[in-house]
Design a protein around this nucleic acid. Structure first.
Lengths: 121, 121
DNA sequence: TTTCTCCTCAACCGAATGGTTGAAAAGAGA
DNA sequence: TCTCTTTTCAACCATTCGGTTGAGGAGAAA
């Protein structure tokens, strides 16, 4: 796992980390704040934050001993771009498939009016 | 990792699997077809496909010994929904922050015309 | 039936992941 | 200074992950 897109997807594959991101949309928070709702040690939360930081999803500043965590929403665009690109491609293909099926139906309708006896499957 | 959203993110965290998904937008393919471009064993590719299947990203049918793989693009919506929900929230917050900053600026501009001496921070 | 092709299952391996506990760095405050 | 709070670092552990090789199942084809 070397590229950023992989790191972002991997970071969000964990429910705890997704919840942290969700909560950070409401505003910056300290490690302690973020850790409070979870039944894990603060060290574990610190590790999760490191993963989010390495993915570029959050940044941390400094306030005395505290390390406020800030969400970097721009990284979401990376994912959205990837997803939309291929979703679009897939949908275009379905579109073409629909057209082919429609054409096949038209052709069938046309022959239905002048059925070729003895050649039906 | 139990919920589908986690499985989808985890599945796409691997570059090889993302590439497979990308190629499947061009049309269904067999395991052998999919494996061809990669420098790994076919068994490894088979494992990747299992991960994609368990995430609901692909389905497999049957054609003699072959197992054609088909992309299920609807699952993309799961991710897009999650991402857009929180991106929107984050953007709304930035919006509010911008407004607050603008207001502060307005207030500052107003007081600048009638400066309050001795009370400046 | 025997053989060949396509694919999966099973067992194994090294590296990474998500958790723990204990120690310590960095500051604020007594 | 000593203490308290916040956070990270280090070492460890169990589990998962991505890969391997070897065996075998399911069909087509000889």
């Amino acid at each position: 796992m070397d590229d950023q897109l992989s790191r972002v997807f991997a970071a969000l594959a964990d429910p705890t980390r997704r919840d942290m991101v969700a909560r950070l949309t409401e505003g910056d928070a300290t490690v302690g704040d973020l850790a409070a709702p979870y039944a894990v040690s603060i060290q574990a939360v610190s590790k999760h934050l490191k993963v989010l930081e390495e993915a570029g999803l959050v940044t941390r500043s400094r306030d005395a001993q505290r390390r406020p965590v800030h969400l970097e929403a721009e990284v979401f665009d990376l994912m959205t771009k990837w997803i939309e690109r291929y979703r679009q491609r897939a949908e275009e293909r379905f579109q073409r498939l629909d057209e082919v099926l429609a054409q096949m139906n038209d052709a069938k309708d046309a022959t239905d009016t002048t059925p070729m006896e003895g050649t039906a499957s």
